[in-house]
């Protein structure tokens, strides 16, 4: 097989890098969900005309989200080094890389979640209000469950982008597959390493997409389908 062409030591290194990539992606995915989802909810419910309307807050939060999103990841990573040191205690290594990854991906996830929630028919919110639902009840019983298919799809996009971003984490010594591909495949002229890395990344991205699509279908009851699905 193709991987037999690689020296055994390099295969070990590849597993090590895979582990680093998965650690970075998983950790920042969880963190960005916990920060991004509430942020997305706030962006929706504080928008003008919504049930917790706070135009100023909405504007400020929206601007910050846009600012972070428009900064290239590689620049962002360097720019927030002091913040990374504050949070992780260090600026090098896999753990330190989780900080800029989370900072970069949270606004993306928040926006995707916001878009999914804004698709929820306004009349459903009105219906819940007419029942005497509190804002929290509207969020947890109407907004989030109804937007779930879109939120899951957003989660998939976020994960795929994270995998891409994580390849750049090598810059701050985060390791990972991308780092391995650059150091061996490019700098040491070993194209087979580069190819191996790309194959693994493609496989991961593809699996994430397939699993994400399946999950989004699973939670979507908006269109009729056979009960066995």
């Amino acid at each position: 097989m193709f991987f037999d062409l690689l020296p055994p030591a390099l295969v070990g290194l590849m597993f090590e890098s895979l582990k680093q990539t998965l650690t970075m992606v998983a950790a920042s995915a969880v963190l960005s969900t916990f920060i991004g989802l509430p942020l997305g909810v706030l962006l929706v419910v504080t928008a003008p005309g919504q049930f917790l309307e706070r135009p100023l807050f909405n504007k400020v939060a929206g601007t910050i989200v846009n600012l972070v999103r428009s900064t290239p990841f590689i620049i962002l990573m360097v720019a927030i080094i002091p913040f990374t040191r504050l949070v992780a205690g260090t600026t090098v290594g896999t753990i330190a890389a989780i900080v800029p990854l989370t900072v970069a991906i949270t606004p993306l996830y928040a926006r995707l979640a916001e878009t999914a929630m804004r698709e929820v028919d306004q009349s459903l919110i009105e219906a819940a209000e007419s029942m005497g639902a509190t804002p929290l009840q509207i969020i947890f019983k109407v907004l989030l469950p109804e937007a779930l298919p879109g939120i899951v799809a957003g989660q998939t996009v976020t994960l795929v982008s994270l995998i891409g971003y994580s390849a750049m984490a090598g810059t701050v010594g985060g390791g990972g597959l991308g780092d391995l591909g650059i150091r061996f495949g490019y700098q040491r002229f070993m194209p087979e390493v580069m190819i191996a890395v790309v194959i693994i990344l493609v496989a991961i991205v593809h699996s994430v997409q397939v699993a994400g699509d399946w999950a989004a279908r699973r939670v979507n009851h908006r269109v009729a389908r056979s009960r066995s699905a």
Binding site: S123, M131, G132, H221
Partner: peptide, 19 residues
């Protein structure tokens, strides 16, 4: 909100939760 529990409403497009 308490008063609204005494006054319920039905809608043109039903407004049921799809989830």
């Amino acid at each position: 909100r308490a008063a609204r529990r005494d006054i319920s409403m039905i809608f043109q497009h039903f407004s049921l939760l799809s989830s």
